[in-house]
């Protein structure tokens, strides 16, 4: 593990990605504690303010402090995205590994069906599911998780298939190791790594998808300080204050770039040959 971290930090992408993701996680952990104001604290005399000493990022249409809202909203956006991705990855890994284990016609049928499901664009899939479940943050989380499942199933399957064919697996079986040992000690560590890489990159999609659902009015509901929702609300007041749009937009892109870079960095660190 320390060796992996060292290799990760040696690539510029990995180091930058790790730094950004660490900052995002820090905001999630202590954001609400260090935020100068409450996310819904109103300062009616200070509406549409540009950044100042009192309000470092300015204020919105009700005179709420944008920095405080962003810090509180980190949980609504980042935690939701990570949870949705983890859920989708877990479901996908189960389906994909089962399919690889089955092999033959069952595998073929499952994979063709997954290809077919993947022809529904994820945003459209998520929209349909939210439409079914009703609009709320939790339903948006479930929708994103379901929308991610087919792609993760595909990746898990191909990873599991490659690993199963490796000589060290055959060697373990040949020297008489039991199935639990082979699966847990030999296969799992090699299956988990590529899936974690893919998951990290997917978190950035999830952040964007989640924010998009909230933007369209189908995810988090006002007055939640969710970043996508903040952009959506700020659009009506863009001629009064551009800061209201800029900060949450940059926050979303910043986190998405961070997870993207970290994912690519991890991939390079795990695959030294490329």
């Amino acid at each position: 593990m320390p060796e992996l971290l060292a290799r990760l930090l040696r690539s510029p992408q990995g180091a930058l990605g790790l730094a950004i993701v660490a900052m995002a996680l820090l905001a999630v952990a202590v954001g609400p504690l260090v935020a100068p104001y409450a996310p819904e604290g109103l300062f009616p005399l200070n509406r549409y303010k540009a950044p100042s000493a009192a309000f470092p990022l300015g204020t919105d249409q009700y005179g709420r402090d944008i920095l405080s809202r962003l810090l509180h909203g980190a949980r609504a956006t980042v935690v939701m995205a990570v949870c949705a991705t983890a859920l989708g990855t877990l479901a996908g890994a189960v389906v994909g590994t089962a399919s690889a284990y089955w092999g033959g016609r069952g595998d073929e049928a499952i994979m063709r069906t997954i290809d077919a499901i993947m022809s529904v664009p994820s945003l459209l899939f998520a929209l349909l599911i939210v439409n079914l479940l009703g609009k709320s943050s939790v339903n948006a989380l479930i929708a994103v998780a379901i929308a991610f499942t087919p792609a993760m199933a595909r990746i898990s399957r191909s990873v599991a298939l490659t690993v199963r064919k490796q000589d060290y697996i055959n060697a373990a079986i040949a020297r008489g190791e039991g199935a639990p040992y082979v699966v847990l000690r030999e296969m799992l560590p090699n299956v988990v790594a590529p899936i974690v890489v893919e998951m990290t990159i997917r978190v950035s999609f999830a952040v964007m998808l989640f924010a998009t659902l909230s933007f369209l009015g189908l995810g988090a509901q006002p007055p939640a300080p969710e970043w996508g929702l903040m952009v959506s609300e700020a659009r009506k007041f863009m001629h009064l204050s551009a800061w209201m749009i800029l900060w949450p937009s940059l926050a979303i892109a910043f986190v998405a770039i961070g997870f993207n870079l970290l994912g690519d960095g991890l991939r390079d660190a795990l695959n030294p040959r490329t």
Binding site: S204, M208, L209, A211, T212, F215, L216, G228, V231, S232, R235, M238, I245, L246, S249, I252, A253, A256, I257, N260, L261
Partner: peptide
């Protein structure tokens, strides 16, 4: 390309 893939469409459109 990193920046491009990290801005969701609604953010790009709004900006």
């Amino acid at each position: 390309s990193y920046v491009g893939v990290s801005f969701p469409e609604f953010v790009t459109a709004t900006l």
